[in-house]
Computed example of a mutant assay.
Amino acid sequence: MTVTNTGATPARIRLAYTLPAGLSDAGTGGCAPAGGGEHRCGEWASAPGARFSTLLRVRVDGDAWKRMPLSGSVRVTATAPGAPGVVSDDEGFAVLFPPGPPVPGIRLAADAVSFDISGGSSGLEVRLGNTGRVDAEGRVEVALPAGVTVPTPPSGCTTVSPARTRCALGTLAAGRTARLRLPVTATPEAQRQAPLAGAVLGQLDPRSGPTRQVQMSFRITSAAALATPVASPPAPTGSQGVLAAEAPAVSDGGGGGSVRRTAILLIVISTLLVVFALALATTSLRRRMTAPVAGPSAAPTE
């Protein structure tokens, strides 16, 4: 985890983070539990532009995979001398698990979900494979975090709850893989909290033999979590922008003076180069015009 003072003044920064059920702190220095999975760390001074990084040590319970999807969050707050109020920033993190537990005869895969800057996504693609020797009825259940939903389940799918969608895939022949694509939407708040985690449970009921089941988690990312510009006055708060500056940077009154100066300098340099090139060409031409003309050479003798 990295915190950067993007403001123009020194600041006092505090850090806190929340772990989901199934995870516990494994001894992060300077941090103490505050109940409900929340941990609070000490305060430190940060100069303008300074960057602070630390590693949060986390222990994962042996049965945490049964509770997926799991996501946590990290929050920072800052105050600056002479600046009213407190600015803050937060960001989520996803706890991901590979497909498991290992079960012969079934294969499950799910792609990450990514929201673009407009808030749209290409959806979630899930693949359930029957790697056994007999046909089996396939079923997939998708679990999503708060604020992320499947607005219009496709044919064969039903909404179990706002966070869960169940889909019947029909009969999967031995060696066949079924593909399922679900539309996914997210609230602006959920997108700002990204990355988050979702989960998929795949199940096969063969004509003979026990039911096979495997589950995994997948990442949910969003461009909105990285798109907010650096905080500056008069914005006292903001998500994904870290610190507010106490005063605007000194300018030359127009806001674009440095750009104009650079443009003028480039024009002057270009003009000088052209003049220099013309002078060289003129000098070379004069030398050729004033040089004596050489007479004809004698014919070679045999």
Rank of each mutant, 00 (worst) to 15 (best):
M1T: 15
T4H: 08
N5E: 03
N5Q: 10
T6M: 07
R12W: 10
R14T: 15
L15D: 07
T18Q: 13
L19S: 02
P20T: 12
A21Q: 14
L23H: 13
S24M: 04
A26L: 04
G30Y: 03
G35M: 07
G37K: 01
G37Y: 01
H39W: 13
R40W: 01
R40L: 00
C41S: 09
R51E: 14
R51T: 15
L55F: 04
R57C: 01
R59F: 00
V60F: 01
V60T: 14
R67Q: 15
R67T: 08
L70K: 07
V74N: 05
A80I: 06
P81K: 07
P81F: 04
G82V: 08
G85Y: 12
V87P: 00
D89W: 10
G92P: 03
L96E: 07
G100T: 12
G100H: 13
P101C: 06
P104D: 13
G105W: 02
I106S: 01
A110Y: 01
D111G: 10
S114C: 04
D116S: 13
I117R: 13
S118M: 04
G119H: 10
S122G: 15
G123C: 09
L124N: 09
R127S: 06
L128I: 09
G129P: 03
N130W: 03
T131Q: 09
V134D: 15
A136S: 11
E137S: 11
E137C: 00
G138C: 01
V140E: 04
E141G: 00
V142L: 08
V142N: 03
L144T: 09
L144S: 11
P145A: 11
A146C: 02
T149C: 05
P151S: 14
T152G: 05
S155P: 13
S155E: 15
G156Q: 07
S161V: 07
P162E: 05
A163S: 15
T165R: 02
T165K: 02
L172A: 02
R179V: 01
L180F: 00
R181W: 05
L182E: 04
T185H: 12
A186W: 03
Q191K: 03
Q193W: 05
Q193Y: 10
A194H: 09
A197C: 07
L201V: 14
G202N: 04
G202Y: 00
T211F: 01
T211W: 02
Q213R: 14
M216G: 00
I220L: 12
I220A: 06
I220C: 05
S222Y: 05
A223L: 07
A224E: 15
A227V: 12
V230T: 14
V230I: 10
P234A: 12
T237E: 13
S239P: 00
G241E: 07
L243A: 14
L243E: 06
L243Y: 05
A245H: 03
A245W: 00
A245L: 03
A247E: 13
A247Q: 15
A247I: 09
A249I: 00
A249W: 06
D252N: 00
G253K: 06
G255S: 06
V259S: 15
S270R: 03
L273E: 04
V275I: 11
F276D: 03
A277N: 12
L278G: 08
T283M: 01
R286Q: 12
T290P: 02
T290D: 14
V293A: 11
P296E: 11
A298L: 13
P300M: 10
T301R: 15
T301A: 09
E302G: 15
E302I: 08
